[in-house]
């Protein structure tokens, strides 16, 4: 597949939240690479660990979280970096777009000051004037007039605020953008405008992007590859069309069937019985086994390995055990 060096690569990443009752295994043994100009969609139901994974790459997790495994950004293992070194990376080499921009913007700081702060923290050699020019250019890229540099974030509508957040995320041309549910709280028409913008922007910034969402419609439009998470595990990772038209993992299949589509003929509503397991103290076994129509004895007893099939797809399921090679 892609032979170019990965922008970011996760090696057996685990993120556990330590609680009085035991560890919550929010991300458990996840490995993947992401390349330049690629958009990787990360989908799965609420609580499956998508945001935890995104936050781990930026190292913005709460104190109770423990990270095991490695996260390489280019050649640096960032799990080994301290907070001061991470600050140099955040906003410059990796940037983030959140669902609610207000949580990451300072309400009493003008738009221009957000830009000046971001730019000058990483590139102190840039003068304030130059920084303002960069800000104006970034805003133009997202369709906001530079006259709005003097406004406060609360003076923007939801859609405009998300545009501004995108401008701030790309102003230093990061190599990786992590977008966590960037359009979830927007109305469909505004969402369509923002998605269009994100595609366009990524086309010329040429960064890699991890797009986290629970909306299988959004990933169908935006991504090249899709990772499906279930209860802290990455259960399948494949090129977009393979996920939609040739899903392998029983959970991927069930998930796709339960999504409402707009094909008029097909009115039968399918759903997955039951609900995902608690991640507290979760033990061995496939985490989908309880709900899986194909589950066998081994599924309840041992966690399936990450199988890499010949075409490079990854699937974590006992059904395919004889077909692939186990990734070490």
């Amino acid at each position: 597949m892609n032979r170019e060096r990965a922008v970011c690569s996760l090696k057996s990443l685990k993120v556990y939240y330590m609680t009085f009752d035991g560890p919550v295994k929010a991300v458990d043994d996840v490995s993947f690479d992401i390349h330049r100009e690629e958009t990787l969609g990360l989908v799965g139901e609420s609580g499956c660990g998508k945001s935890t994974l995104g936050s781990a790459i930026l190292k913005i997790l709460p104190r109770t979280a423990r990270i095991y495994g490695k996260i390489f950004l280019d050649d640096t293992d960032i799990t080994a970096l301290d907070e001061r070194e991470m600050q140099k990376i955040r906003g410059a080499r990796i940037s983030m777009i959140f669902q609610d921009p207000m949580t990451s913007l300072n309400p009493i700081m003008k738009v221009k000051d957000h830009f000046i702060e971001t730019i000058r923290t990483h590139r102190p050699e840039i003068s304030e004037e130059e920084a303002l020019e960069m800000a104006a250019r970034a805003l133009a890229e997202v369709g906001i007039s530079e006259s709005r540099l003097n406004d406060y974030p609360f003076q923007f509508s939801g859609g405009m605020r998300q545009r501004m957040m995108i401008a701030l995320a790309i102003v230093l041309r990061p190599s990786l953008i992590i977008a966590d549910e960037p359009t979830t709280s927007l109305d469909v028409i505004v969402q369509a405008q923002i998605l269009e913008l994100m595609k366009e922007i990524q086309g010329h910034v040429r960064s890699a992007m991890i797009l986290i969402t629970h909306d299988l419609g959004v990933v169908a439009e935006m991504t090249n590859r899709i990772g499906v998470m279930y209860a802290g595990h990455l259960v399948e990772l494949a090129p977009r069309d393979s996920i939609y038209y040739d899903p392998l993992h029983p959970y991927t299949k069930a998930l796709l069937e339960s999504v409402p589509n707009t094909r008029i003929e097909d009115k039968e509503l399918k759903y997955i019985d039951g609900f995902p397991p608690s991640l507290l103290n979760v033990g061995e076994g496939c985490r989908f086994a309880d709900r899986c129509p194909k589950a066998r004895k081994v599924c309840f007893e041992k966690t399936p390995k990450d199988l890499v099939l010949e075409d490079g797809r990854l699937v974590k399921c006992w059904l395919y055990e004889s077909e692939g090679q186990v990734e070490e």
Binding site: V188, A192, Q193, V218, E221, N261
Partner: peptide, 18 residues
């Protein structure tokens, strides 16, 4: 036209009028 469909083929051919 703005509703994202969980189907890449539809998304490719869908005409958007945003």
């Amino acid at each position: 036209s703005a509703v994202p469909e969980p189907d890449p083929k539809i998304m490719k051919t869908k005409k958007k009028m945003i």
